[in-house]
Design a protein around this nucleic acid. Structure first.
Lengths: 339, 339
DNA sequence: CTGTTAGCGCCTTCAC
DNA sequence: GTGAAGGCGCTAACAG
């Protein structure tokens, strides 16, 4: 392992000068710098960022917590964040919370140990008893921003889709098609932001249309995955609850719902319309392509990174949620109410 | 930011003793340790792993390079690796190469800078002009292991599915159903290991059956994604090449292929059988569930991590590829040849 | 058992 | 412009 000292000696300069040269400070003579750079290259010198981190107390790495890596939605987020961060010469450490609050707090502590310069949090979606982890970050003066969703009860910087607006557009569209009895598949707890905000949007559309909101059938599902969507629909329909349309909290669940409907020999959209949320690549996989609300994950990721870097650079910003605009994508899983 | 020194002073001991206490070395008196631990907790002390890394020249973090985060197959790998690594008290840094060799080499260099203890590489699938990056790792004595696939021409430690066997099983099964004219969708270059190994398996099955291998239609696709599968099938079939069965290099492409067939009004499996590879959760999404070869990603991830940690601990192992057994999963997208 | 000393590799004043 | 000196926070001998 070759060090800066080795380079300095071989180049016949002091370690300090070598350091200045490597970091392109103008205070060093062009000749000397050239010499140092050459020697460094020749020796295959690779700077030790650990040591640099200690000396500068800045690691140039940021921590990223995601709830789920298997969902391509988050895969996309990770990809974009990686891209933008790399452009800005930052590394990142990734950890997966699996929506587990304990794990999330352990991850945050390990990020603090690592002295990350900042952290991006996709918060676990369970009601929180306390906010110790976030407090720890504040105490250690490590900036963080929530991405994709925020946490109820903890005001902070966040970047996310205007979920309410997306649901509003979608619901309005469905009502416009004549659907009245709508079933909504939400997460395990309808009061948690990712569900609540969407429901707010539905409600707004109902209100505007002068329709009674309480005709909506809200089904809480334990997980937000394919099987949950499948089972929920199987259950409800076998209990005789046949809606005009089904709205799922995300595309994966919507796809699960479609699977169930097919098995029940119900035609989509003739018998029941189905809509998702996210606009995964997979939304066009099913032979009946899915109507959905597109979340602009490139934009979300980009804003998240910019916001975090601004905070790291010391910009004093007011904690608030930045909303990214959703887009209604109409495809073939929805149609006018027939009967 | 409170340091070990602060704790030591407040606890009335030397910094060294505090350090020993924090690290649970037995050489320190129970009373003293208790005292130190209490003070540390009270002060909210969080050790600085950067400093520790410098002192011990061991960072307890490993680097992970993946080619694609959007494919849930790799999402699964990342999830498992995260899990196993965390159990062993390791962190990891993730970076995405997007199958770009230049980016891959930059990532490796940044990993060296960070002084990771080891790296897990899912190598980019392009023919390599040189092996400088891997050489750099060797020079810096940083252990690494390839996961999911290896690189032709660079012998090293690797853990992956026995791809050849998987293809062999699948092909044998298809031949057994009476299919003779098979179309195989591979990556952009059939000589690259992920394609080559699979093709070897097909070939073996053909040989065993005493059938002429050259009747197989091998189609090279630029990318291994949904659209590539879709387009490849659209192209081939509109050129009048109608096979009995289609085998894709992975499930995503197979799903794309199915989409194309449906649009061409061909029935699956009555008109054409389709098979994938990977066994994604999504393989059951399409109304016709996909016959595929399951890769045991939990096992692959686990072995990869164990192998890397063994190497980090200094075990001197012979570079070789460890194969994980594949499993043929028969579902509804394949059936006996009809005409 | 505990404290002293000496780094790990790099950066940053501050003289010269 | 360049070198000497000190320090980032922690650990690893070595004494005592």
């Amino acid at each position: 392992m070759i060090t800066l000292k080795d380079v300095a000696i071989k180049a016949g300069v002091s370690e300090a000068t070598a350091s200045l040269a490597m970091n392109n400070k103008k205070t060093v003579n062009a000749e000397t710098r050239k010499k140092v750079l050459e020697v460094a290259a020749a020796m295959g010198y690779i700077p030790n960022s650990i040591a640099r981190g200690l000396a500068r107390s800045k690691t140039n790495t940021i921590g990223l917590i995601v709830t789920d890596v298997q969902n391509p939605y988050f895969g996309g987020i990770i990809g974009y964040i990686d891209e933008y961060l790399r452009l800005e010469q930052y590394n990142f450490i990734l950890s997966v919370s699996n929506d587990d609050l304990l794990k999330e707090s352990q991850i945050i502590e390990s990020f603090i140990r690592q002295r990350v310069d900042g952290v991006i949090i996709i918060p676990a979606q369970s009601p929180r008893a306390d906010f110790l982890s976030f407090n720890q970050l504040d105490l250690n003066k490590i900036p963080y921003v929530f991405s994709t969703t925020y946490d109820e009860g903890w005001e902070s910087h966040a970047v996310m889709t205007d979920l309410t607006k997306g649901s509003y557009l979608l619901t309005k569209y469905l009502l416009g098609l004549g659907h009245r009895s709508i079933m909504v598949l939400v997460s395990s707890n309808r009061t948690v932001s990712i569900s609540k905000l969407r429901l707010d949007g539905c409600m707004r559309a109902y209100d505007e249309a002068g329709l009674a909101w309480d005709t909506v059938n809200i089904v809480e599902c334990r997980k937000n995955d394919f099987n949950s969507g499948y089972k929920a629909v199987m259950n409800e329909l076998s209990n005789g609850n046949k809606p005009d349309a089904i709205m799922a909290i995300n595309d994966i669940m919507a796809l699960g719902a479609m699977k169930a409907l097919k098995e029940l020999n119900l035609k989509i959209p003739e018998d029941i319309s189905v809509a998702g949320y996210d606009d995964l690549i997979f939304s066009s996989i099913s032979d009946i392509s899915l109507t959905t609300v597109r979340q602009d994950i490139a934009e979300i990721s980009h804003e998240t990174v910019q916001l975090l870097l601004d905070r790291i650079k010391g910009k004093d910003l007011i904690p608030r949620t930045r909303f990214v605009q959703p887009e209604l994508i109409i495809r073939h899983s929805t149609g006018v109410r027939t009967e």
